[in-house]
Write a protein that binds this DNA or RNA. Structure first.
Lengths: 241, 241
DNA sequence: CGAACTATTGACACCCCTCAAGACCCGTGG
DNA sequence: CCACGGGTCTTGAGGGGTGTCAATAGTTCG
């Protein structure tokens, strides 16, 4: 039942397994696992949560909303992501997290965070790392939404999703799972659903991508990166310290 | 010369002064101070820096750029902000930081970060907090750029700037310094300079705001928040742990 | 087989961008 | 003191990218 193999709290050296001491420590920190169905809320904007989660498997979205219903998804959630850092460290969540597929989460009690920081500088580093990485992804998304055309945004977003899927070992050279709806993409890119759909159609017609039955097919990743005006840098896996 | 009074690395309890031990520790961590002129680069996207900075005074912007020159400012930089967390924890900066006014920065050597995390869980918490806060600000900005109209974006951005100025003790009830150019605002909001200017003019005509000679005047902050479709929540100052 | 959700497509409107020119502001040097 | 120059702000005209509305088709699941 207790499984730490996919826990993001070991970014200090992503290739290093936990030492026996660390493993024992982490198992003690872990409170259990949580399974949620597809399309369920995990954490809600404005709420405080006594728990902090890491994603063992499944996909989701982080999003923020305006009262009148407008929604912005700020990032896509992948296995290995940390959820609830904000609620752990501030008073409340500043964004919501919802599952897109069924997910299973690793549960950590927030009140033990202090012990973690005190007793394990490696884990402290990991959490700083996780925060910095999230900030970096948000910045990239902000650049897209603020300064790229619809076509570029879509290309960049699909490239990123493809890249992150590959990084967690999903899909193969040209294929990747694509669990999100067009509406989620539109909300992530600051576009309307209709325009997202039309732009996607055009990209399909051009043979740039294929997307059906929750699978994304990209023959030429570099071309996609070029269309998206992004430099195709793979995920940095190995922090320095 | 060594002054830690405005250092963000004490968010654990923002009202608590450093203990003598902590003070000694931080002074030892600090490598010196750096003064930069207005309009100078501090840290560049893609570069690694051996230093981490905190802002003692002055203002700046964080920004990302596309090769063809398009620029997105991701956040405004205020005194008390931490700069270079990404370079400290990942391999390189994912965004640039430039000074808007003259700034003086507190310099910390990156290679001593590990000691900091190991010896001071309070500081570790502070850094996690700083990262989470930055993420929260970016998320708010992303929501604006993706889902708000030009008018709303401007109102929200000015409200936020006003609010952050007040939080650091600048300005008074209705006045606040406004060091940035319209171009910076436009780049932060994903708008063109021209449209930013026209929308601002309209807001001035309506008496919603005044802005001249680097000073922002807002008589009715709540009205501004309403126009921006934001809930006027003040900065959270007191994290829980 | 129906219900609910998701994707697709067309028509039309408008918000915002681009281009372009001029005004203002301010430091520098003759 | 005034001319000059660069940066910033302002204003107008016109075009295009994207949003909204609305209706239909396709898909999934009970």
């Amino acid at each position: 039942m207790i499984d730490c193999s996919n826990c993001p709290l070991r970014k200090h050296d992503v290739f290093a397994a936990f030492t026996p001491t660390e493993e024992r420590f982490m198992k003690e920190f872990k409170a259990g696992e949580l399974k949620v169905d597809a399309g369920s809320p995990v954490l809600s904007e404005g709420a405080a949560s006594p728990y902090l989660y890491s994603v063992l498997n499944g996909f989701g979205v982080r999003s923020k909303a305006i009262e009148d219903g407008r929604r912005q998804v700020t990032n896509f959630v992948f296995p290995g992501d940390l959820i609830g850092l904000q609620t752990a460290v501030m008073n409340a969540m500043e964004h919501s997290v919802d599952s897109t597929t069924a997910m299973t989460l690793c549960v950590f009690p927030r009140e033990r965070l202090w012990d973690l920081l005190k007793n394990s500088p490696e884990r402290a580093f990991d959490m700083v790392w996780a925060g910095a990485r999230e900030e970096s992804l948000l910045g990239e998304n902000l650049l897209s939404v603020g300064r790229r055309t619809a076509r570029e945004r879509l290309a960049a977003a699909l490239w990123n999703i493809f890249s992150r899927m590959r990084a967690i070992g999903e899909g193969d050279r040209a294929h990747a799972p694509m669990p999100w709806r067009q509406q989620d993409l539109a909300d992530a890119l600051g576009l309307s659903l209709v325009h997202t759909n039309k732009t996607l159609s055009r990209m399909k017609d051009e043979g740039l991508i294929q997307w059906s039955s929750s699978t994304l097919v990209v023959e030429d990743l570099d071309q996609l990166a070029a269309v998206g005006s992004i430099e195709a840098t793979p995920e940095r896996k190995r922090p320095l310290i």
